[in-house]
C-alpha cells in the first residue's frame, strides 16, 4: 500500500538521487529539492483536479478520498502500525520472542524508581500546561495592541525557536552551582548569594529538582500558548469589544465575558497540545539530569530501557502507559467536540 503512494514519487526522483558521482554539482541538492516539491505539488494538484472532475455519482466520495486519503495512509503506515507493534511488544520479553503476559507491567509497579517516574510524569502534565497557558494568555492580553508588539512577542517566543537541548543547556547554565566560598557562575545561585542565602544544587536536591526541570518546559511552551492566544484575541470581532466597553465593563469583566469565550477553542487546543508535548518530554530530562536524582519521566525511562539497556519489552510497556495517560485528554476533547456540534 505504501509502495503505491511512495513508489511513483521515489521513482521520479531516482534519476535525481542517483546521478553519477563524477558529474555532481552544487545545485544538485537544490534540484532535488525543487524536483521533490514540484512532484508533490503536481501529484496533489492532479488528484484534486481529477476528483473535482469525476462523475457526479462518485464525486463526493472521490473528493473525500483525496482530501483525507493521503494523510490517513501515511499515518497508518508511520504511526498506527508502530503503535500496535509497541502494544504487542510490551507483552514480550527483552528478546521479543517469549510471551510474558503482564510481567513487564508488574515490573513497572514494583520498582520504586519506576513508580517515582510515573508520579513525576503526572506532576509534569498537571503543572506545565496550566502554567504555560496562564503566562501565555496573560502576556498575550497585556501586550495586545501595545507599542512594539512584534518585538515583545518575539522575546517570549524565542525559547520556542531554541531546540529542547539548547534550552536545557541555557538553563543548566542558570542553575550552575559553585561552593559558597567561590564565585558563582550561575545567575540563580548568584541571586541567592546576594540575598544572603547558601548556593543551592538546584538539579540534585529531590523533590524540588523536578520543579526546576518543569520551569524549563514552561519557559518553552509559554511562547506557543502566547502566539496562539494572541492570534485568537485578534480574531475577536471589534464590535463585541466595543459593545462591552460601552456597557462599562472593566478589564476583568471584559476578560471574563468577551475574551475568554472568544478564545475557548484555542484554549482547548493549547491545553491539549502542551499536555501531549509534556507527556513526551524527554530531551530536557535527558540533557539536564539524565533522569537521575528522582527526576526521570516515562518518556526518558522508555528511551533508556529500549535503546540503552536494550529491554524493548519494558520500554514498550512504558510507552503503553503513555498511551493510557493521554486517554483523559482524548475524552475531554471528545466532549468539547460534542458540545461544539450542539452549538452549531
Amino acid at each position: 500500500m505504501f509502495e503505491l503512494a511512495v513508489g511513483p514519487v521515489s521513482r521520479a526522483l531516482v534519476p535525481l538521487v542517483t546521478r553519477g558521482v563524477s558529474e555532481s554539482h552544487w545545485w544538485d541538492k537544490w534540484l532535488l529539492l525543487a524536483g521533490g516539491v514540484a512532484v508533490f505539488i503536481a501529484v496533489i494538484g492532479i488528484i484534486l483536479f481529477l476528483a473535482d472532475k469525476s462523475p457526479k455519482k462518485i464525486r463526493d466520495w472521490a473528493q473525500l478520498l483525496v482530501f483525507v486519503g493521503p494523510s490517513i495512509l501515511l499515518l497508518l503506515v508511520g504511526l498506527v502500525y508502530p503503535a500496535v507493534r509497541t502494544i504487542i511488544l510490551s507483552a514480550f520479553d527483552d528478546k521479543g520472542t517469549t510471551f510474558v503476559g503482564l510481567s513487564n507491567y508488574l515490573w513497572m509497579v514494583t520498582q520504586p524508581s519506576i513508580v517515582q517516574t510515573l508520579i513525576n510524569t503526572v506532576i509534569w502534565v498537571l503543572i506545565v500546561p496550566l502554567a504555560s497557558v496562564a503566562f501565555g494568555l496573560a502576556y498575550a492580553i497585556f501586550i495586545d495592541k501595545a507599542r512594539g508588539e512584534p518585538v515583545l512577542k518575539s522575546l517570549v517566543f524565542m525559547p520556542m525557536a531554541i531546540s529542547f537541548v539548547g534550552a536545557s543547556v541555557i538553563w543548566k547554565f542558570m542553575y550552575e552551582y559553585r561552593g559558597s566560598e567561590l564565585e558563582q557562575i550561575g545567575l540563580l545561585n548568584q541571586i541567592l548569594v546576594w540575598l544572603g542565602f547558601q548556593p543551592q544544587q538546584f538539579l540534585l536536591n529531590s523533590p524540588w529538582n523536578t520543579f526546576f526541570l518543569i520551569i524549563v518546559m514552561i519557559w518553552i511552551q509559554t511562547g506557543f500558548a502566547m502566539v496562539v492566544f494572541s492570534a485568537a484575541i485578534k480574531g475577536i470581532p471589534n464590535e463585541i469589544i466595543e459593545a462591552a466597553k460601552l456597557d462599562g465593563a472593566n478589564a476583568w469583566q471584559q476578560f471574563r465575558n468577551v475574551t475568554l469565550p472568544g478564545i475557548r477553542g484555542s484554549m482547548v487546543v493549547v491545553l491539549t497540545t502542551i499536555s501531549i508535548a509534556t507527556l513526551k518530554v524527554f530531551d530536557i530530562v535527558r540533557t539536564m539530569t539524565g533522569g537521575n536524582y528522582g527526576t526521570s519521566v516515562i518518556a526518558n525511562e522508555m528511551y533508556s530501557q529500549t535503546f540503552i539497556q536494550v529491554q524493548p519489552g519494558r520500554g514498550s510497556a512504558l510507552a503503553v502507559v503513555l498511551f493510557i495517560l493521554v486517554l483523559p485528554i482524548v475524552i475531554y476533547n471528545i466532549r468539547v467536540m460534542r458540545k461544539q456540534k450542539e452549538i452549531r
Binding site: 538521487v17 558521482v21 555532481s24 544538485d28
Partner: peptide, 17 residues
C-alpha cells in the same frame, strides 16, 4: 549502495560549495 551513492554525490556537492 544507493545510500552511499547519494551520500557520495551530496558529499561532492559539499566540497564544491
Amino acid at each position: 549502495r544507493r545510500l552511499i551513492s547519494t551520500a557520495a554525490m551530496v558529499g561532492a556537492v559539499g566540497l564544491v560549495l
